[in-house]
């Protein structure tokens, strides 16, 4: 699974600019679904049709987009001012590198290095230009953070584990899924990081009977972390609630039961800040029972997001277990 993860996390795709990552995933899932489409907002949809009358329509969503920055102004000396796309922290930007759609690389600098709590307003992107004339970027161009994929023991580190790791889980599930009574709708969604904007419309189009988002979640296992009963390496997390949604208790129970049957380590997740695509899917049309299989992740929304490969593989197994058996809510 690691070569797939490396490809996905090193790809470019800030929210609203998902063309490259969508093409990459489309190539990876070729031949694995009965049909593949791209919906009006750019969500990539792959559907495996129902094999049994008793089967349900199960939607699995992972977002393709990543946080990034967008150029607001190129000054007379060729430096680009920018705003965030999604939740970008100023503390993780300084000295960081960003990459634009065409490969142009930029370094994030600051007006005064001695500022204690810097804001993005005081920062700029240095693309090596000397003026407006030779600056390769212009207002409205978007960049993602740039950092290679690395392995640290059983942990994997990269930018945009949030949520390319979810995309990797979905691709892996498609590859490993042998038989299922259900219609399985894989949605690789857009614009999650700016407010779960892609997932709601995709669910409107798919009309699922139930849905699972697959996304990263915070952990409580680092120094002075907020109290949270999720640790890296302790298995996939089954979401009970986050600040945007309450998981359907029947889905929580179903996932816990399937994990127990297969002797898969799993942990319950109660997330105090943040949400996922499940939030928007749950309230699409007349409502969709929704839950989440989460991948514990440290250092979220920094260019070095860390997951444990065992949790990732556990998430794949848990979803396969759930899809291969009948679902009664």
């Amino acid at each position: 699974m690691k070569p797939l993860i490396k490809k996905l996390v090193e790809s470019y795709g800030p929210s609203g600019h998902e063309d490259q990552i969508r093409d990459l995933i489309r190539g990876e899932i070729k031949g694995l679904a009965d049909y593949v489409t791209v919906d009006p907002l750019g969500n990539l949809i792959a559907v495996i049709k129902k094999k049994s009358k008793s089967g349900r329509k199960v939607m699995l969503a992972a977002h393709m987009d990543e946080i990034g920055v967008m150029v607001t102004h190129v000054d007379s000396k060729g430096f680009a001012r920018f705003v965030p796309i999604g939740g970008v922290y100023a503390t993780t930007c300084l000295g960081g590198r960003v990459r634009f759609a065409d490969g142009t690389l930029g370094v994030i600098g600051i007006e005064d290095r001695k500022i204690n709590s810097p804001s993005l307003d005081q920062m700029f992107i240095d693309v090596g230009a000397t003026g407006v004339g030779d600056c390769p970027v212009r207002v409205g161009d978007a960049a993602g953070f740039y950092r290679p994929f690395e392995e640290v023991g059983s942990r994997l580190v990269a930018k945009s584990m949030d949520d390319r790791i979810g995309c990797a889980v979905l691709v892996e599930v498609m590859r490993a899924l042998k038989r299922t009574p259900h219609e399985v709708q894989f949605a690789f969604t857009v614009q999650e990081e700016v407010g779960t904007r892609g997932a709601g419309p995709s669910a409107f189009g798919l009309e699922p009977d139930l849905a699972l988002a697959v996304d990263v979640t915070l952990t409580g296992d680092t120094p002075k972390a907020n109290k949270m009963a999720v640790s890296l390496g302790a298995g996939a997390a089954i979401k009970v609630r986050d600040s945007g949604m309450l998981a359907d208790p029947r889905i929580v129970a179903l996932l816990e039961q399937r994990a127990a049957e297969a002797r898969l380590p799993a942990q319950r997740e109660v997330l105090e800040g943040g949400s996922t695509d499940a939030r928007s899917i749950q309230i699409a049309r007349a409502g969709v029972p929704a839950g989440c299989v989460s991948i514990p992740c440290r250092h979220i929304h920094t260019p070095s997001e860390m997951v444990d490969l065992r949790d990732v593989e556990g998430a794949v197994s848990l979803i396969l277990q759930t899809l291969e058996k009948p679902i009664e809510l």
Partner: peptide, 17 residues
């Protein structure tokens, strides 16, 4: 690019997008 918004914010998310 920045804050603020227009009717686009509502229209883009209606129905299937």
């Amino acid at each position: 690019p920045g804050g603020g918004g227009t009717d686009a914010g509502a229209i883009q998310r209606t129905r299937a997008g």
